[in-house]
Design a protein around this nucleic acid. Sequence first.
DNA 1: TGCACGATGAAC
DNA 2: TTCATCGTGCAC
Length: 184
Amino acid sequence: MIRLPRSFYDRDTIMVARELLGKTLVHVSDGVRRAGKIVETEAYLGPHDLAAHSSRGLTPRTKVMFGPPGHAYVYFIYGIYFCMNVVTEREGQAAAVLLRALEPIENVDGRTCGPGLLCRAMKIDRRLNGHDLLSDDFFITTPGAAEPFQTGKGPRIGVDYAKHWAKRHLRFYIRGNSCLSRRS
DNA sequence: TGCACGATGAAC
DNA sequence: TTCATCGTGCAC
């Protein structure tokens, strides 16, 4: 199975967010291989993007976002959930793509619609923060037989505090997919 | 050292 | 609309 190369992530974040749609996220843990099709993403463009965690600057929490592309930025939110991002662009550019929803493919138990549920079902937690996505146990790949689809876009979810950045269409999804966020 | 709140999800 | 639940970041 061919993993996406580093160069895929080392590009414009919006482009990466759009092209991650339809790709397959794979995580192997405890000898179990889990996989899901990415159907919804959000782009967080960097420190100037007021909705991005990196807009607070380089902190212990956001360190991974400032690092090299192709790594996972996993953070804990609301005392309950984890959310997973893919770090994009060259080192020093603190940008990332949030994975918001998957479609189950293999060994996924529980729902995968929403960033918190997605991580729970894929067994993704803080141990995977900073993990290289070109490793053997955690990576993204292009499916063999990909069905064609149309993409849609809209404002990001839950970032109303980000002033004009909240209005920008930086959320992308596979149009018509049953697994999309309620709010909008 | 303390405290307000969040890139959520589920219940009411 | 409210609440669970706790780490993070910033005020003091």
